[in-house]
Every structure is written in C-alpha cells, then in structure tokens.
C-alpha cells in the first residue's frame, strides 16, 4: 500500500482527487458541528454555556495527539524504508499538529478563566499538552535547523521516535506529579460520562478537524515536494 502511494507522481494524482472531497467533508462537518455545538446541544448544568468551548478543545486535543503519533509512524517509514515522501509527510504534519496543540492550550485557558477563575492551571492534562507542544517545537526546529533542508530529515525523524517513546513516560510522570501536589480537580476538562447530545457535536467537530488536517497536510506536502525538486535541480546545476 505504502509503496504504491510512495511514488510522487501517483501521490499527486491521488491527492488531487482527494483534496476537494476532504475539503467538502470538512466544510460540511464544520457547519453542522458548529450548529450542533452552539444551538442544538444543551448547556451543562455545572459549567453552563462555557461547556461549548469543549467542542473545539477536546477534538483539537485528540488531533494533537493523533498527529504526533502519525508523524512517528511516518518517521519509522522514513528511517526504515528511506521513502522521502514519509519525511515530507512528517514535516507537513508538524505545523498543523503544533497548531492543534496550541488551540487546545488556548481554549483550555479560555475555559479555565470562568471555571477556575484563572487563565492557567497546572492541570495534568494541560501540562502534558504543553509538553507535547514543546515536542512539536523541538521537531520543527531540528527539521529546519540545517543549511541543507534534507540534512535535518533523519535527526528529526529520530527525535520523533524518541519523543513518541517518551510521551507515555512524560504523561505518566505528569499525572503522578499532579496527584502528588493537588487533589484531582472536581471539574475535569471532560466529565466521566457524557450525554449523547454533547457527544454528537464532539464527534462531528472531530471529523471536521480531521478533514481540515488532511487537506492542510496534502497542500503542505505538495509544496514541500516542489521545493525539494527545485533544490535538487539547483544542486545538480551547480555541479555541471
């Protein structure tokens, strides 16, 4: 499957066909999701109207984690099978991934203001997300940190693997730290059980974000492929 997709020309054909579909799905899901989130779902009896922030916050958090795992999978493909497309995929996903992590932190902070009375609380989940955001920053800095762009690919992919191995450890240590320093908060970012009326907009918004993520990734990948072609041509020219 991967070999089939790894051919850049074929990738371009498939992605060109896929792009409008994904954009359309994403747009429809966003419209529907926002409608459900703001008009067709009840306010929480405890959190009131602020619960609607969750419909952005939670899917973004899911996407931030999913994206990092996808990047690590791409890194394995790149390091083992040396497919340049896998490296390009990881690079393309990094920015939207960091964006999701940032949106999660931002909306978490918006939610925390009325709920906790402060913009930032060292909640275990928020702290883990902050560290995930740092890991994204580290990857992006390393991938683009070399004079020749391709030189950064292998170290950056290696860093992704180290990061994905460390992620559960970091998550565990932060959770552990949190229980050590403060009792578990009464108001968790998502309740233990969730009403179906709230679950529906959550899933629709997640679909919307997934579609948007795929579209952005495809666009960024095509751009990176073009850039790489140009730099390869320049390198070849400088020899002759």
């Amino acid at each position: 499957m991967f070999d089939y997709l790894a051919n850049p020309t074929r990738f371009r054909k498939i992605s060109a066909a896929l792009l409008p579909v994904v954009v359309l799905v994403s747009l429809i899901a966003f419209t529907l999701g926002l409608y459900l989130a703001f008009f067709a779902s009840p306010a929480d009896y405890q959190q009131g109207e602020t619960v609607r922030i969750m419909y952005i916050h939670v899917p973004a958090a899911w996407m931030a984690m999913l994206t990092y795992i996808l990047m690590a999978v791409a890194a394995v493909f790149y390091l083992v099978w040396r497919h340049p497309l896998a490296d390009i995929g990881a690079r393309a996903m990094a920015l939207p991934g960091a964006g999701f992590a940032f949106i999660t932190l931002l909306t978490g902070s918006f939610w925390g203001r009325p709920m906790w009375g402060t913009w930032w609380v060292w909640d275990a989940r928020l702290t883990s997300m902050l560290i995930l955001f740092f890991l994204y920053l580290g990857y992006m800095a390393l991938a683009d940190g070399f004079e020749r762009a391709e030189r950064g690919s292998k170290p950056a992919c290696l860093l992704l693997l180290v990061g994905v191995i460390n992620l559960p450890i970091i998550k565990f240590s932060v959770d552990w730290w949190n229980t050590l320093h403060q009792g578990s908060s009464v108001l968790r970012l998502d309740g233990p059980s969730i009403d179906p009326a709230m679950l529906k907009p959550l899933l629709v918004m997640a679909l919307a974000m997934l579609g948007w993520f795929i579209a952005i990734t495809i666009l960024r990948m095509s751009r990176l492929i073009m850039q790489r072609r140009i730099s390869n041509l320049e390198a070849r020219e400088s020899w002759s």
Binding site: L142, G145, G152, P155, L159, G163, I169, I170, S173, W177
Partner: peptide, 27 residues
Amino acid sequence: ALVLGSRQSGVFTAIIVLPLSMPVLIF
C-alpha cells in the same frame, strides 16, 4: 548528537533536552 551540524546547536539542544527531562525533574 541530533543537533550536530545544525545552525545553532546550543538553543536546539536546550529545546530538545528540556521537555524530555521533565520526568527526571518530577521524580
């Protein structure tokens, strides 16, 4: 080792090391 040959290794080392050493700090 990862930042060998990069443009500004000092800063890069720090932003790679610090998030990864969070568990060491906590424990």
